[in-house]
Design a protein around this nucleic acid. Structure first.
Lengths: 218, 218
DNA sequence: ACAAAATAATACTACTAAGTATATTTTTTC
DNA sequence: GAAAAAATATACTTAGTAGTATTATTTTGT
């Protein structure tokens, strides 16, 4: 039975085994898209990473586009889960923000292929030949991205209100803040990363930079 | 006479008229690549932006790849020229760095299509089917990029040595610094940008964030 | 004004890769 | 352990596009 792509909401209809298989394919796709980006990566490239053939991929996914969207969505879900935990562990806006930054960077270094793919802009690749259903998914992904940014912006605003950092243009500084973090996806190479300690230094240093960027008095 | 692609060093062999035409094509290519990225942009897309046909483009450029490289190179040359001017206008490392940051951001907002293209990683698109000559050009572009980063890293090191900012991992903070700036290519939309004043606020705010990120005592 | 050179458009070729249809193999179920 | 269902592989079709060959037009020099 051809099952094709399923939205996140109906994933539970799949058998646990099928879902595991989907995840393996998703990992291979993240790996492949990471290396060359969406357009120049063929389904056969993904199949090569997977060690299988096209047939298998099309059994679980309707199209290359849907596969890409699912990688993207999985990446965002990782991010969301990680920073919400971080957020709830603290009271003070700046403490929250610091924990969120660390969580975000940890997700990047630990799930690099997914996070790298998520940074390749969605809208960029999909102009024109998309179905209405796919445009819905794009809108959803963009909405998630905006919500994610809003979580950071909210804490920055909170810190401003409480006087912990100077008044400043939140819309702009939140971009700079996330830019400092997300830029990691451009230069970090997980295969060159030796130790967990080295990654910890990365997380601490970039977080320190971003927090100081806001101009707090410590 | 078919002339094809020429490297920067031999551009002066072209007549002024031919060089102007090349530049018009380059602008169109930057515009087109900006919208969708390299792979999904066809030469016909570029020709559409140009308001002409393929024939014209292939008269001046050997291949789509060479065209992309030239956009990239032009972007880097803009950056280099801008920050070298900024650098020479000041003595103090932090003053230099601030001026370099402002210069870099101004180049981004004023030549957005080129700068956006330059941020699309070169290496990402070109795995495999490249000629030896093209691989040379990739290496050259990557070298320029490293040199560019080294100019920023040098000033950060200078500021550290003079005690203007705390000791820190320069390799990492220079990435965060440039990340805060370059991230602008992901969210800035020149067509929505109303006034020069608004752009000035952007440049000042992002620069302020990046400078503070280094932890100076002001 | 006209020949030659330069520039540009058109018509064509070859190839890549997404998606599909079909066949084969593996797993499950009774 | 055989029939049915699920999972995977293979073979094929088709659309899009990079690059080229050829033709047409414009510019330049004399």
């Amino acid at each position: 039975m051809q099952r094709g792509n399923v939205a996140a909401a109906e994933r539970n209809r799949l058998s646990p085994k099928a879902e595991r298989r989907r995840r393996v394919i998703l990992d291979a796709a993240a790996q492949a898209f990471m290396q060359k980006g969406f357009a120049p990566t063929s389904i056969d490239d993904v199949a090569d990473v997977l060690g299988a053939t096209k047939g298998q991929i099309y059994y679980y996914y309707r199209s290359k586009t849907d596969l890409f969207f699912d990688v993207h969505l999985a990446a965002m879900e990782m991010d969301m889960a990680a920073i919400k935990d971080a957020q709830q562990a603290h009271e003070d806006p700046l403490a929250r923000l610091r924990a969120m930054s660390e969580a975000h960077l940890n997700v990047i270094v630990e799930n690099f292929p997914y996070q790298r793919v998520a940074v390749q802009s969605v809208e960029m690749h999909m102009e024109g030949q998309t179905t209405e259903e796919q445009r819905d998914r794009i809108r959803h992904l963009l909405k998630l991205r905006d919500e994610y940014e809003a979580l950071f912006a909210g804490e920055i605003s909170g810190a401003m209100t409480s006087g912990a950092i100077p008044q400043q243009n939140v819309k702009l500084v939140v971009k700079a803040f996330l830019g400092a973090l997300n830029w990691t996806t451009f230069w970090f190479r997980p295969e060159h990363s030796k130790s967990a300690k080295e990654n910890a230094v990365l997380v601490a240093t970039i977080t320190q930079f971003a927090m100081q960027g806001l101009g707090g008095t410590a």
